[in-house]
Amino acid sequence: MVYKIRDKETGKVYEVTIDEETNEITVYDVKTGKPVKTVNMTIEELKEAGYEVEPV
């Protein structure tokens, strides 16, 4: 599923895909559409880390 996340401190917005089964999150560069990095976190962990998470 695709989400937009926003860093509450910097205001930067990222587009991510989240595999609900493995909790693998792939972060994409919004301008190029290319993957930047992959992390292993849940949506709740993202929120605790200071991100706003919205489904696209």
Rank of each mutant, 00 (worst) to 15 (best):
R6K: 11
G33T: 02
T26P: 00
E48K: 12
T10P: 00
V39C: 15
A49T: 08
V36Q: 05
V53W: 07
V13S: 07
V56W: 08
Y3Q: 07
V13R: 03
V56K: 08
R6S: 06
A49K: 11
I5F: 04
G50T: 03
K4S: 05
T10E: 00
V13D: 04
E54G: 05
V13T: 08
E24S: 14
V39I: 15
M1G: 11
E48C: 08
E48Y: 08
E20F: 14
T42Y: 02
V53K: 02
D19F: 07
K37P: 04
Y51Q: 01
P55S: 12
V27T: 02
V30D: 14
P55C: 10
Y51S: 01
V2D: 13
V36M: 10
G33D: 02
Y14D: 00
V27S: 03
K12W: 08
K4C: 14
Y14P: 00
I25E: 00
V30C: 14
L46I: 10
V30W: 14
N40F: 15
T32I: 03
T38R: 11
G33L: 05
K4Q: 12
E48H: 12
E21W: 09
K4Y: 14
V39R: 03
D19V: 06
E21M: 11
V53P: 04
E21S: 13
M1V: 13
I25K: 01
D7F: 06
I5G: 00
V53T: 04
M41Y: 06
G11L: 03
M41D: 01
V2K: 15
T32D: 07
D19T: 05
E21K: 13
I25Y: 02
N40L: 12
R6Y: 12
V13G: 01
V36S: 05
G50K: 04
V27W: 15
L46G: 00
G50C: 05
I43W: 08
T17F: 10
Y51W: 14
P35H: 10
V2N: 13
E15H: 15
I18F: 14
V2W: 15
M1P: 15
E20N: 10
Y28P: 01
P55Q: 10
I18N: 01
R6L: 09
K4A: 05
A49E: 07
G11Y: 02
K47W: 10
A49D: 07
T26F: 08
E54N: 06
I5V: 11
K34R: 12
E20P: 14
I18P: 00
K34Q: 09
Y28W: 13
V13Q: 06
Y28G: 01
E54M: 12
E48W: 08
E44H: 10
T26Q: 05
E52Y: 06
Y14S: 01
T17K: 08
T42C: 03
V53S: 02
V39M: 14
K34F: 11
K31G: 12
V2G: 11
D7P: 00
E44W: 08
V16W: 03
V39Q: 04
K12S: 08
E9M: 13
E20W: 14
G50H: 03
V30P: 15
V13E: 12
T38N: 06
K34W: 11
G11F: 02
G11N: 06
G50I: 04
V2P: 09
V16P: 00
I5L: 05
E20S: 12
T32C: 06
K12E: 14
V36P: 02
Y14L: 04
T38C: 13
L46P: 00
E20T: 14
T17Y: 13
E9I: 14
I18G: 00
V16Q: 00
P35F: 12
P55D: 09
I5M: 05
T32Q: 03
T22H: 12
N23C: 07
M1E: 07
E15Y: 15
T26M: 06
T38Q: 07
I43R: 04
V2L: 12
A49L: 13
I43C: 10
E24G: 05
E52L: 06
V30Y: 11
K34E: 10
V56S: 10
I25R: 00
I18Q: 04
T10D: 03
T10I: 00
E52R: 03
V56Q: 08
E9H: 13
V2H: 15
K12F: 10
G33S: 05
E21C: 13
T22G: 06
K34S: 08
I18A: 04
E20L: 13
E54P: 03
V30M: 10
V53H: 02
V16E: 00
V2S: 13
D7L: 03
A49M: 14
E54V: 10
K12H: 10
D7Y: 05
K12Y: 10
E45S: 09
V39T: 05
Y28L: 10
T17I: 11
V27A: 05
V39K: 04
G33P: 00
E44L: 08
D7A: 03
I43H: 02
M41N: 03
E20M: 12
E54L: 14
V39Y: 13
T38Y: 07
V27F: 15
T26V: 10
T38G: 05
K8D: 01
V53Q: 02
K34D: 09
I5A: 05
P55R: 09
D19E: 05
T38H: 08
N40M: 12
E9L: 14
V27I: 15
K4D: 01
V36T: 07
E20R: 11
P55V: 10
R6C: 09
G11P: 00
K34I: 11
K8M: 08
V53F: 09
L46N: 00
I43F: 09
E44Y: 08
N23S: 07
E15G: 10
R6T: 15
K31V: 15
V39G: 04
T32E: 06
D7E: 09
E44K: 10
T42H: 03
M1L: 13
I25F: 03
T17R: 13
E54S: 10
D7T: 00
V16I: 15
Y14Q: 01
D7Q: 06
A49P: 01
E20Q: 13
K37F: 15
D29I: 03
T32N: 07
K37S: 08
